[in-house]
């Protein structure tokens, strides 16, 4: 974990209100594990913004983010050559697979980027199911196709891929093929549905959670989520104990 000034190599819109940022950030890029995140200083904002690492390759770090409020709007105006101040690589990412049995990635919306590096960096074979609201929001489809076996894309309005939610193909695939685990990231209702389905079908499931943060390094206890630890409920830190948790331990709000 360190602070690093990262030079922007490229910055482009890849879907509606969604940008891909490639940074020269050697120290954090080399330390990064799939599912970890960086904490991005946004001008004079008192709080940094947590953004997952989509890809760490050599000295380069790729982030994919959606514009939601003032911080991400500021970020979207940055141009190549400028520097961004990052803390990273932070948190506990997805577990390295213990065998070469296949793993299913399930991503929803802006929750799709953090899963991509799993397929690049872990040796096990990966399949992916990606869900979006509509065709204008679809991101990283080609990138997933390049590194995964089977890839399904669903949109809620049917404007691209299959119409409906990720849980429909997920149910089919889990029934047909023996997966060692499901790794998921996306909106909470989706994660809850994915976790429920995985449990029903007896497949271990790991989810990447979001919560509002201050320090990003484990000190301030602002970013907590309720987790069942050996029977008792406790508030654990998304930034330090997570963002990836075993789905069965999560006490959904």
């Amino acid at each position: 974990m360190r602070q690093e000034n990262a030079r922007i190599l490229s910055h482009e819109g890849i879907a509606q209100e969604t940008y891909r940022l490639v940074l020269h950030c050697p120290q954090i890029a080399h330390a990064a594990q799939p599912g970890q995140f960086v904490h991005v200083l946004c001008g004079t904002k008192p709080l940094r913004r947590p953004i997952s690492i989509c890809r760490a390759e050599g000295d380069a770090l790729t982030l994919v983010y959606g514009v939601r409020g003032e911080g991400t709007a500021w970020l979207s105006e940055r141009v190549p050559g400028e520097e961004l101040n990052l803390l990273g690589a932070l948190g506990q990412g997805f577990p390295a697979p213990a065998s070469d049995a296949p793993i299913l990635l399930v991503g929803g919306g802006i929750g799709t980027p953090p899963l991509l590096d799993c397929a690049h960096r872990f040796a096990a074979p990966f399949d992916a199911i990606l869900g979006f609201r509509s065709a204008t929001q679809v991101i990283l489809e080609d990138e997933y196709r390049a590194v995964c076996g089977a890839v399904a894309v669903c949109t809620e309005d049917g404007s691209h891929g299959t119409k409906g939610f990720v849980t429909a193909p997920m149910q089919e695939w889990l029934a047909q093929k023996k997966y060692a685990a499901v790794y998921a990231c996306g909106p909470t209702p989706m994660l809850q549905a994915v976790a429920g389905l995985a449990k029903e079908l007896g497949v271990p499931c790991f989810v990447s959670l979001e919560e509002r943060m201050a320090c990003g390094v484990g000190a301030c206890l602002t970013c907590v989520v309720k987790i069942r630890v050996s029977g008792a409920e406790d508030y654990l830190r998304v930034c330090k104990n997570g963002p990836v948790f075993h789905a069965e331990e999560v006490v959904w709000a």
């Binding site: 709080l47 509002r212 943060m213 206890l221 602002t222 970013c223 309720k226 508030y235």
Partner: peptide, 10 residues
């Protein structure tokens, strides 16, 4: 245990 999240606002 402290309070339920969210616990921080800017």
């Amino acid at each position: 245990l402290g309070n339920p999240p969210p616990r921080i606002a800017e």
